[in-house]
């Protein structure tokens, strides 16, 4: 039972409290493109699958790094390799299992496979204080994927309203995106208080 509570606690903290996009400003390439909710869910699913699968080897690797302090500089390299291998496996598995879905996002799938979100979650989860047992590690990776999808849905929803308004010419496009990203992160900082996320 404790397994579930820890998993849920890590999941909740990754999704709401330290949301990857709003509290940690971690993004995927092409975050500002115009997307439909369907595409957002596919990207979220890809991120979550790669996160969860790569969290198992990453947990074992972080165990080793925690014991031998000398290897710390190689931690990012090892996590990157884990992430890369898992991505390649997923890439070819998807090509075989779901060819029609694969054809539609083949051009952009590599960018959603290896990027700041996937590598960032592994690194942050490894640095988390109570990541000693697997449940909170896995919960954090799961929560990060779900949290990032919710963040993109929030961006989509604000974009729906802004598409119909007359924003002034100097703020149209990217400047207004940064501003409303900032305001939503202001809303989410209410949970964090004024201590900076690690």
């Amino acid at each position: 039972m404790i397994f579930l509570t820890e998993l849920f606690a890590a999941f909740l903290s990754a999704m709401m409290v330290e949301n990857l996009l709003f509290a940690r400003a971690i993004d995927i390439p092409g975050l500002y493109e115009k997307r439909t909710p369907g595409q957002i869910f596919t990207i979220g699913a890809v991120l979550m699958v790669i996160n969860c699968i790569s969290s198992i080897p990453a947990y074992l690797a972080s165990g080793i790094f925690r014991s031998h302090a000398a290897f710390v500089p190689f931690m990012t390299l090892s996590f990157l390799l884990i992430n890369g291998i898992v991505f390649i496996l997923c890439y070819f598995a998807m090509q075989r299992l779901m060819p029609e879905r694969f054809a539609s996002i083949q051009k952009s799938l590599p960018f959603y496979g290896v990027n700041c979100v996937t590598l960032g979650t592994l690194l942050i989860a490894a640095r988390m204080s109570n990541s000693s047992h697997f449940s909170s590690f896995f919960g954090y990776c799961l929560g990060a994927g779900v949290g990032f999808t919710c963040a993109m849905l929030v961006l989509w929803s604000i974009r729906q309203k802004l598409a119909l308004t007359h924003t002034p010419k100097t703020f149209r496009g990217l400047p207004i995106t940064f501003i409303y990203l900032g305001i939503v992160s202001l809303a989410l900082f209410g949970l964090l208080g004024n201590q900076l996320p690690s």
């Binding site: 929030v154 729906q160 809303a187």
Partner: peptide, 17 residues
């Protein structure tokens, strides 16, 4: 409550759609 209202303002266009 103020933070919650801000977050929900971001989602209100989604409820409309």
């Amino acid at each position: 409550a103020v933070f919650a209202i801000l977050l929900m303002n971001a989602l209100s266009p989604a409820f409309d759609c």
